[in-house]
């Protein structure tokens, strides 16, 4: 019976399901191994000796981990707020207007960080901050990283917000105007509430991108500006303990949480 169903399912192509499972294994096996070994009570990073949370405890007592977490959160929150605000404004300015000359250029500039390989952005930003530090004696400290992250996060926040605005039925705004709402009232009462899922999704993406960034941060960060990814990078160049598994697992869980939230929000708009 099952076999008959398979032959009769015209969409089916033999072996494709197997390849799909292989892809999942490739993508998830390393992550799962990492997570499982973070609960290892022994001191070997890949020899399982027993279940325990000792390495999580060790991580939470680690002063460097603490300061890296603090730096990461300061940078990610600030960059996320700045980039989301800028992205919301830009999304309105590129969708709720008559097409204006230069709009395609504006669009290209906003999306530039997506097209340039990250390593180029990293060295260019490094050069730029070095120049203004040398020429004007300006050094924003951790602000340098925040600025670099904001630039990089803008297109990630911009895309879902713009998509949401474009999907939105313009007659809803017309209807509000028809019902005596001034443009500002219509924006506040209709456009903004309907835009919230897009903004939430954009915020989540901007946060992950900043939270996880390694390449740009590594080149731009000065001494004492260690973020969590940089902390991990420093750890793997030393003799490793399962503590790094625990910290990596925490980082992955944060990413997964934000991705899932963003994903669920963007899917729920259809219902």
């Amino acid at each position: 019976m099952a076999d008959l169903n398979k032959t009769l399912d015209l969409k089916r192509q033999a072996g494709f399901g197997t390849v799909a499972i292989i892809c999942l294994i490739i993508l998830y096996a390393p992550i799962l191994v990492l997570m499982i070994f973070s609960f290892n009570s022994g001191s070997q990073i890949t020899k399982f000796e027993g279940l325990g949370l000792s390495w999580y405890a060790a991580a939470f007592e680690n002063q460097e981990f603490y300061s890296a977490t603090k730096n990461t959160l300061i940078i990610s929150f600030t960059a996320t707020i700045f980039s989301t605000i800028a992205a919301v404004l830009a999304a309105i300015g590129t969708t709720r207007v008559k097409p204006w000359p230069g709009m395609s250029w504006a669009f290209m500039i906003i999306n530039l960080p997506l097209m340039v390989p990250e390593i180029i952005t990293a060295v260019a930003t490094l050069s730029f901050f070095a120049l203004i530090a040398g020429a004007f004696g300006l050094n924003f400290g951790i602000g340098n990283i925040i600025i670099a992250h904001t630039v990089f996060c803008i297109p990630f926040a911009y895309m879902p917000i713009k998509a949401r605005l474009e999907d939105m039925d313009l007659t809803l705004e017309n209807a509000a105007a028809d019902l005596y709402a001034s443009p500002w009232q219509a924006f506040k009462r209709i456009t903004l509430p309907l835009l919230m899922p897009g903004i939430a999704s954009g915020t989540a993406l901007a946060f992950i991108v900043s939270f996880d960034d390694f390449t740009i941060t590594q080149l731009v960060a000065g001494p004492g500006q260690t973020t969590l990814p940089l902390f991990i990078w420093n750890q793997i160049r030393r003799p490793m303990t399962p503590e790094i598994n625990a910290i990596s697992t925490i980082l992955l869980m944060v990413s997964i949480l934000f991705i899932s939230v963003s994903f669920i929000i963007s899917k729920s708009r259809k219902s």
Binding site: T171, A175, A176, D178, L179, A181, S182, L194
Partner: peptide, 27 residues
């Protein structure tokens, strides 16, 4: 439009999806 004492019933109805029936009518 918001200064004209005329109202429209739209082809697609254009009901505000984030409001209840009563909130729509009261808008």
């Amino acid at each position: 439009p918001y200064k004209r004492p005329v109202n429209t019933v739209f082809q697609s109805y254009a009901l505000f999806p984030h409001m209840t029936v009563a909130q729509n009518i009261g808008f």
